[in-house]
Amino acid sequence: MTEKIGVLGKQPQRRTGVERVVNAPLPTVYGKFQAIGYLDHDRGDEQVALVHGDLGADRVLTRLHSECLTGDAFGSQHCECGDQLAAALRAVVAEGAGVVVYLRGHEGRGIGLLAKLRAMALQAEGLDTVEANLALGLPVDARDYAVAAGMLKDLGVRSVRLMSNNPRKREALERHGVEVDEQVPLLIEPCESNITYLRTKRERLDHHLPHLDAVGHLS
């Protein structure tokens, strides 16, 4: 008698990359957007691109905005993130077309919310934002922009005018195949609560923040 041997079926391959899941209208105080939701299969994060107008393919006004709960939702003056998000949304509406890619999983330059709060506590004791991350045994900047490039490619965007003061964002996009035709400054007036943080970004993280030269009187 011949014994039948069962043959195991092939295991389904895990999906990778970014997948567009939903497109919904999103009226805001800044103007009307389409909220296009994506799933990042590599990290498991849910992402969103806020699109205004007809993007076209080239020289699209674009902001890659790293999630910042304290700044975006709570209006923290420890950073300039909330003001930058608002300025970017206003800019794409004024332009008539553009996209703000809101990058979840980027909290605290990629270290997460609780770690960011621990780093903020260390900064209150005198460390700068770079020193605080290192003191916690964490990377200074752990963000990855592959998903942002994937979302832009899905939207048909080949090249952008990037609203950012951070040269690393430009380098990351170009490394992932999205051309940056121009880097558009997104400068927010500093205040006493964030001037040290902004100076650290300029001096230690190479952010282009020329407007800080005019506010030397802030401590």
Rank of each mutant, 00 (worst) to 15 (best):
M1C: 07
T2Y: 12
E3I: 01
L8G: 05
G9H: 09
K10I: 01
Q11D: 12
Q11E: 14
Q11W: 10
R15Y: 08
R15P: 02
T16A: 13
V18H: 08
P25W: 07
L26R: 02
P27C: 02
K32F: 14
Q34W: 11
D40A: 05
R43C: 08
R43P: 00
G44M: 09
D45W: 04
E46Q: 12
V48G: 02
L50N: 04
L55C: 08
D58H: 07
D58N: 14
D58K: 13
D58F: 03
L61F: 14
L61Y: 13
L64Q: 07
H65G: 06
C68W: 10
L69E: 10
L69P: 00
F74T: 02
G75V: 02
C79N: 10
E80I: 03
Q84M: 13
A88S: 15
L89W: 05
R90P: 01
V93D: 12
G96K: 00
G96Q: 02
G96R: 01
G98N: 08
G98A: 04
V99F: 03
V101N: 06
L103E: 02
R104D: 05
G105N: 05
G105V: 01
G110L: 05
G110D: 08
K116Y: 14
M120P: 00
A121R: 14
L122C: 10
E125R: 11
E131A: 15
G137R: 01
G137K: 00
A142S: 13
L152D: 04
L155I: 03
L155M: 04
V157K: 03
V160L: 01
N166G: 09
N166D: 13
K169E: 13
K169H: 11
K169P: 08
R170Y: 14
A172V: 06
E179L: 09
E182R: 09
E182G: 03
E182H: 11
V184K: 02
L186R: 06
L187A: 13
P190T: 04
N194G: 12
N194T: 06
E203F: 01
D206N: 15
P210F: 11
A214M: 03
A214R: 06
V215H: 14
V215K: 05
